[in-house]
Structures are given as structure tokens and as C-alpha cells.
Write a protein that binds this DNA or RNA. Structure first.
Lengths: 228, 228
DNA sequence: CTAATGTTATAAAGATTTTATAAAATAATG
DNA sequence: CATTATTTTATAAAATCTTTATAACATTAG
């Protein structure tokens, strides 16, 4: 349940298949795109937890795709490329890539680098658990517990909660939350947020009518506070 | 200036020198340690912003050093090793290393990977706060505090206060304030301003009748002064 | 000094926007 | 196909913003 989503943007049929099978067998949900255009569209409409990006795409330079993604996408992007020259590597890393792997790569290493990158965004540690007065979140196991009872969150609810916890104390605008969870094209769908904040409150707040964790900032957005 | 500090733990004299010179010439502050023991001591006494760790140390396995460091050290650790086998790489990454470079490496790539690793951690927790004698504003969290009590401002009130603070000391005309907050078509609605200045004063001034921060400039507008 | 005029302050009523919630319709998943 | 999740719609409630009314204050002319 609640697997991390990975988007693969690569034009080689064989490579896509290999990656898809490998990742799927290691408990990731996988989406694939053979072109820059499709990749960016998929990312925008359904932001994944991590993107594997090939530099050699048929319709657009991978470097450009990287730049465009980084205008709004904040989670890890790993480059997977046959290019083994320093110029490409440095350029990609400086444009916001989190890692750069050269094809052909070792499967185990790829998986380890993916785990490492995912860990760094939730960044609290190797076995990270966020604890609050009345509930806790185990980021590595993706499990939310309230008073020792496990709570079932849908993947959207879980992403939203994670985003809130990562920005504890800060007021987050509707715009920001929508872009991060649903993608840039959903920036005006405030109603989505209301529905999901409501569902989250129902699940994690003792009294959903008087929330102590997810506070509404009228006209602005929401703020997560740990409470204590 | 504020350069990032990097700790190098490597037993090869030549490698240490090379890294030290390279990093120093790229505006990093560098400390070096030739052994695991010295490295961990240095890290503990003077935590750097990033650690470059060689796996082949004379006194202790690099993997063990990594594990021990990760018990408390949360910033990036980059492995630099001659070992090019998958087992070592996967083990290091899963033990909390942020990256793994194989010697000999390309200098430009190393620097780019260091920049990348630093980028992913440094943006956490740089918040700008404006402090005044009796109240303060945290712009990143959007929190206004008065004598340690949090104050609730509506979004218009907050915008107005922000605008005042940004132009501290200057007399701001009605026209300017109205245009900035409500837009150019509201330039004549001075009454709006009176209402909102009144509400702001009630919330941030000790004595709203004798304001010390938001001063009326009759016939002109208002002036925000820090007061001390 | 007093009245007249222009400016500012404050409370409160009315209008609008924003938010919460349930529930139905649609889509995705296994 | 059955189940679960997401999107969409509808409506009630809450919060905020706008507008009005009135009072207070200051300045200047007579």
C-alpha cells in the first residue's frame, strides 16, 4: 500500500521496460513516458515522488526538460544517461538534478541511489519517524499511527500530510499546495484542497471541527502546527 | 562571506592535498583528517556543512565511520573511494551516504556533486524575521508575534503591515498604499485605509489611541516607525 | 473665540468571499 | 467486476471586506 511513485522519461523501449520491471518489483509505482512532451505532461498532471530522466530524448534536450521541471517540481530528479562527459554531468547537477547515473548502470546501485534520494527529501534520517502529541508518521514505512491505531490514508492524503509536516509552522498558500500535490495546472482548484484537508482532519484531528494541527489561514491557505 | 565548511577524511596524503587545494580555491573552508579517529573527533568538535569520506582508512572501516557519523550528523556525507564494486556502493548509500564517487574522479564533477548536496540541505531554516521593540514578524512562516503572543491578522492586514515594514521610516501616501494593496482602481478609497490602519493599530499598538508605530501624516498618509 | 471646513477614527451593518461538509459522479485499481 | 480513490457539485456556515454613519480632531477665517 501507498507506494512511492516514480516517473521514467526515456525514449529507449528496452530501457523503459527494464526500469519499469525492476522498479515495480521493488515496490514502486511506475509511470513511463517516451518523449519529453509526454513526460512533462505526466509530471504536471500527476506529480511523482521522483523522476528518472534520460538526457537523450527525441523531441527536446533533456537539459531543457530538467530546467522546465525545476520551475515547479521540487522532489528528486535523477539523470540516467549514456553521456559520460563531465560537461553534461556538471550542467545537469547545476540545473537541479539530484544525481547522475551513466548507462549502462548497475541495478542495485540505481535502486540504492533512488532510496537515498527519496530519503533526502523526507530528510530526517535513516529511519525517520515524525512524532506528534497524538499521532505519528513513519516516513520509511509510510505508516501513520494515531494513539497506537494505524490510520489508513489514501496516497493523496499521505502526500498532503507529508508536505505539511515538512513545512511545519509555515503558512502554505493554496497555490503552493496545489502545485506540489496535484501539479502546476491545478493551481486554481482550491476546492480539491478543501475536500482533502477536510478528510485529513477527520482522520488525524481529535476534534475535526476545532483542528489543532491543520489550521486554516483564511484567504491564504493552511498551516500545520505540531501542537506542543 | 560565510563559506561552507567541508571536512575531508582520507588517508592518502596526495589526495588530501589535491582536495584541499581544489576546494579551497572554490571558496570552501576545509579541514582534513588522515584517520577515522581524527575525522570523527573533528566532526564532533566542529561540525562541518559536508563531509568527504574515504572508505579505505587505516584504523577503521569507512562503512563503520559512516554509520557512527550518521547517529548524529544529518548534513551531507559524500563517499570518495577507489572501490568500484556494487556491494560497497549500495551499502554506503543505504547507510546514509548522500553520494558515492569513484577515484580517480573528475574535479568538476566532484564540485558539482558537492554543490548539489549542499543545495539540498541549506535551504532549510533560513527564515527572515523583522524584530521590533514590542512585536515581530516572521515572513517565511507568516507569523506576527506581540510580546510572545501570536497575533491573528487577516490577509489584507498582513499585506498592509508588510508594506509598512518594507518602507520603514518613509511617509507613504494614501494613493500609494491603496494602489499597492487594493490595486490602482482603488486609489481614491481612503476610507478603506482608515478602517484597516485602525484595525492594525488595535492589534499591534500597545495604546491604539497613541500609536508609536503607525503614525498619521495628516493630509498625506501614514508612516511606519520601528520605535527604537 | 466661534463657526466652518477638511481630515481622521471607530463602530457596526450589509455584502461578498472564502471555507467546510456531505454526497453524487467519475475514474482508477487490483 | 468490485472496490477504492478522486473529482465534481451543491449548499450551509464562517470569515473577511466594503460601505455607511457618526464622532473626534485640527486648522483656519471671520
Amino acid at each position: 500500500m501507498n507506494r512511492s511513485e516514480i516517473l521514467i522519461i526515456d525514449d529507449e523501449e528496452q530501457m523503459r521496460k527494464l526500469l519499469e520491471i525492476t522498479l515495480h518489483s521493488h515496490d514502486f509505482n511506475v509511470r513511463v513516458a517516451p518523449t519529453a512532451k509526454e513526460g512533462m505532461l505526466l509530471a504536471a498532471n500527476h506529480p511523482p515522488d521522483l523522476i528518472l530522466l534520460d538526457l537523450g530524448l527525441p523531441d527536446e534536450s533533456g537539459h531543457d526538460v530538467l530546467k522546465k521541471l525545476r520551475e515547479w517540481y521540487t522532489k528528486p530528479i535523477l539523470i540516467v544517461s549514456v553521456q559520460n562527459n563531465e560537461e553534461d554531468i556538471v550542467k545537469a547537477l547545476d540545473n537541479g538534478a539530484n544525481d547522475y547515473l551513466i548507462k549502462p548502470f548497475r541495478t542495485g546501485e540505481l535502486l540504492a541511489r533512488i532510496r537515498s534520494a527519496l530519503r533526502n527529501t523526507t530528510f530526517i534520517g535513516l529511519n525517520s519517524i515524525a512524532e506528534f502529541k497524538d499521532f505519528q508518521v513513519d516516513f520509511t514505512a509510510r505508516i501513520v499511527t494515531k494513539r497506537n491505531e494505524q490510520i489508513k490514508l489514501t496516497s493523496t492524503e499521505y502526500s498532503l500530510l507529508t508536505l505539511f509536516i515538512q513545512n511545519e509552522g509555515k503558512a502554505l498558500t493554496h497555490n503552493f499546495l496545489l502545485k506540489q500535490i496535484w501539479g502546476p495546472s491545478f493551481a486554481n482548484e482550491s476546492q480539491y484542497l478543501r475536500v482533502y484537508v477536510g478528510q485529513l482532519r477527520k482522520k488525524i484531528e481529535d476534534n475535526p471541527n476545532k483542528p489543532i494541527h491543520i489550521i486554516t489561514e483564511s484567504g491564504v491557505g493552511y498551516r500545520f502546527v505540531s501542537g506542543e
